[in-house]
Design a protein around this nucleic acid. Structure first.
Lengths: 128, 128
DNA sequence: ACTTCAATTAGACATTTTCGAAAATGATAG
DNA sequence: CTATCATTTTCGAAAATGTCTAATTGAAGT
């Protein structure tokens, strides 16, 4: 049980002094449990960390739209729009419907919009 | 009142057909109001869209830590750690305290952690 | 002063992200 | 079957991001 020796070869921290080794070890153990969850959560936030994609979500809050209409709302090319729609769809937040040549996208559920609103309220409080 | 003519010179959408012009115009008007809010929200999510920074937040949930201890938790150099701490501090989520040569960082309020938890629950529901 | 040590900043480099242009798909109409 | 049109995919360029190393700052201790 050698918690103290945080000295493994290729570790950048191997020569840094650690002041609260026990606490650090405890926290690392805790984080280790979330090892698989954190990347998921980060991916989620990465997806939302882009004005274009946020606009898409807010636009679709008004109901389903075809790709080219979304492109108009965004002021982007259809290609770029399609790309962003795909990212949102791949992570399960959008559903699509084929109708002839057209493709219509819509939100899957309201949870995401609620989360956006909730997070935005937090943002407003932050500076207060 | 020429909503229909979404044809301005340097606009990539100027040659794309728009199917529901009225609806698109309405949505664009709506989004225009959020013009200043959306970048803020995107910045917020961008900040959270990174495993390193999420780890920092979770680590500091256990109480304040000096920079080098955070570096140990992360397995990164002190420089990289300091950089990420600064980003979180600049956006108002962390506070710092000087004590001699040491600098201690801590969470400012619990709102952010609550938001993380809440968003994570949404993530779990998504696939269900 | 001079040294030491934690933290920050600066510079460099690799990776990732975002978007447009062009090519590829897929569906409909003639 | 060919042409047309909405969408998707592929590719490349420009910008942003994350980390490292090295240099700088700032506070104590000798």
């Amino acid at each position: 049980m050698k918690i103290a020796s945080a000295v493994t070869a290729a570790n950048p921290t191997c020569e840094i002094r650690c002041f609260e080794q026990e606490k650090v070890a405890r926290i690392k153990a805790q984080l280790a449990k979330d090892e698989e969850l954190l990347p998921q959560l980060a991916e989620f936030y990465k997806l939302l960390g882009n004005v274009t994609r946020l606009k898409i979500l807010l636009a679709l809050a008004h109901g389903e739209l075809c790709v080219c209409d979304v492109a108009h709302v965004l002021g982007l090319t259809v290609a770029a729009t399609s790309h962003q729609l795909k990212l949102l769809r791949d992570q399960g937040w959008l559903a699509m419907r084929n109708d002839g040549k057209m493709v219509y996208y819509r939100l899957r559920g309201e949870g995401l919009l609620k989360a956006l609103k909730s997070d935005f309220r937090l943002l407003e409080q932050r500076l207060a």
